[in-house]
Design a protein around this nucleic acid. Structure first.
Lengths: 365, 365
DNA sequence: CTGAAAGCGCTAACAA
DNA sequence: TTGTTAGCGCTTTCAG
């Protein structure tokens, strides 16, 4: 155990101290940047440290201080553009504040999420940024907090946790998007999501639920009947989603417009529409969430709901760090950022098309 | 310092030991899964641990063993699809082997890369997976290895480092793509990359350099003259790249085909092409690297060079872990995976078009 | 099979 | 301003 596994032993503070001819406490003080030290002593220590290529051992420091300067990030899928942007912003913000980032992926699987939190806790991250998979199975998060590891919620709300939350105003965003479609005389508007199709409404993560709510509200406000079949919960299997979409598009009263709850879902929809030769925006209109870079490059460019996820992630990280440093110890607060619609041409008036049924009611199944 | 910052003190092995009526050494043995322990003793310890909701402290364990069970990952840009996929594969593979992942982003900035490595080293990650920004400024990597922190290279080669390397056969991939364009009678083929435009050829990261080499070789093999102006190094500024592309496309002898070295570059190109009303594949043909999900959804679907980045990242992670565990201590090896072209319709014959100059030489400036 | 004790590298009282 | 001395929670000889 002497060698510690590392072949060339790392120099420690003790080595530096000896080389500088001071006590290790003194060396530690100057190297750690705390406590007092004489100017000349300082210099000697720094010199010795450089000479030995000393690298502080954060692990040992963490042991002694009880803080690891690491924050854990738990999200569903790093490959998803939305989360990728979030993680990027988190890393940037964290490292600007001297924190490292340990990343875990859950794939929307609550067991993986539990494992992830356990591992992060074992590694004594100072805090957690979580985009929870479930709004009801949150015992592990409560556990984390009980163990003194605070967390903030990103993108998804879980009121019972009573934690600082950073989310998009999904209700409003969806409402606005649907309202704009209605203004273009669309009456049969479908909402397409990759939310799980089984299970209670209650199980939906808040973002999707709120978008559905916004969708319903907009229809309701316009006096349009809500047709359950037009709300597609595709689940995480894209093949299944594609199948549902094909069926919907081939039905007698196919929708004239779609609202996709994220860009990957929109992609599936796009493929189905092409397959069925339903051109945008002539035959159908489309708005999707997420201003993915490709949405501006397809033909026609897609009208999107742009979400300020980077700002959101940055705010979440700063908030967490502030709390870790003892500032901002108030009650849980919720930060809701507004999305903005970017009109790009995938929406056209339903009136321009010949064979569109315009009866408001009784049209659905 | 008693309370350690955490409000509710975490139970330690000592607590569990006391509760189980054994020595902490014994408790440690059963909880740590090493050394001997009587069946009944084991049980008592486990019970006590569960009762107290004991969570091992990986930090303390790392201190004692010298291994943190963490690997550091250093890439340029997490938001880039290619790296996002890589990271996903790394995390999956690492956690399947009991390792955590600390992520750092460099933005292709060598200073940030240095910082990142320093922080990771300070946190005593057991090993590093790096996609280095520079093929010459690698002292920090050598330093890492000297300190006993091994690393593997992902996506980019740096021969002087003599490290295990996992990369795509970029030369062959580019060669193949260009050859296929040539077979379609294209003679003016442009290569579009986001490599930095200043600096020596030498400074290019290996992946881009090899693609350019493959491009040249394919032209050379076909007896086509290489026109420097057709090799675009756009740098990291998309506006600049767009400007160059516009200029190129508006020149007298605009290219009839493009090879884009990644999907984000292809996106910029796509926008310029539409702006100038150059439709694909009628007016120009296009092949791009990276099978991004959107490439199949645009009109027309893009012919792409699909890179097995997930496999690559997985192999890199497994290799690193094997080395960490003392297996596979042989000399540095290089793993080169082949990319595959996916034909999707963004390429058509140059002959089919009327006004295309076919003189092989003297066409460029 | 179990316990005592030393030590990993650092921080933080407390003395000097 | 500097040094001494305990720990942080765990692993790991070494005795028993």
């Amino acid at each position: 155990m002497k060698d510690n596994g590392r072949s060339s032993a790392q120099p420690t503070i003790a080595h530096v101290a000896r080389a500088a001819g001071v006590s290790s406490a003194t060396a530690a003080r100057v190297l750690g940047g705390y406590g007092y030290a004489g100017a000349e002593t300082r210099q000697r220590v720094f010199d010795a440290a450089k000479r030995l290529a000393y690298q502080p051992n954060q692990l040992a420091r963490s042991m002694a201080t009880g803080r690891s300067e690491m924050i854990g990030v738990v999200v569903a899928d790093i490959e998803n553009l939305y989360f990728a942007r979030a993680i990027r912003a988190i890393i940037d913000t964290a490292s600007a504040n001297g924190f490292g980032v340990v990343l875990a992926n859950t794939d929307e699987d609550i067991e993986l999420e539990r494992d992830a939190v356990r591992v992060l806790l074992a590694n004594r991250v100072d805090g957690l940024i979580v985009s929870p998979t479930s709004s009801i199975e949150v015992d592990h998060l409560i556990g984390a907090r009980d163990m003194g590891c605070p967390f903030v919620l990103l993108d998804r709300r879980v009121p019972v946790l009573n934690a600082d939350t950073f989310a998009i105003d999904n209700f409003r965003a969806a409402h606005q998007a649907v309202a704009s479609l209605i203004k273009q005389e669309h009456r049969r508007i479908a909402l397409v999501s990759n939310a799980p199709s089984r299970g209670e409404q209650h199980y939906l993560i808040s973002s999707v639920r709120e978008r559905i709510d916004g969708y319903r509200a907009a229809l309701h406000d316009a006096g349009i009947q809500i047709v359950p079949k037009l709300i597609i919960l595709g689940g995480w299997d894209t093949e299944n989603l594609a199948r549902q979409l094909r069926q919907l598009c081939q039905s007698a009263n196919r929708p004239t417009a779609f609202l996709a709850t994220d860009s990957s879902v929109a992609l599936v929809l796009l493929n189905v529409l092409r397959e069925l030769d339903l051109s945008i925006p002539d035959k159908v209109s489309l708005i999707c969430f997420d201003d993915a870079d490709w949405t501006a490059a397809v033909t026609p460019p897609l009208t999107v709901v742009s979400q300020p996820i980077r700002d959101l992630a940055k705010a979440a990280t700063e908030d967490l760090i502030a709390r870790l440093q003892g500032e901002a110890t108030g009650p849980a607060k919720e930060t809701l950022l507004q999305a903005t619609m970017i009109d790009r041409g995938s929406v056209s008036s339903a009136l321009a098309r010949p064979s569109v049924k315009r009866r408001t009611s009784a049209a659905g199944n």
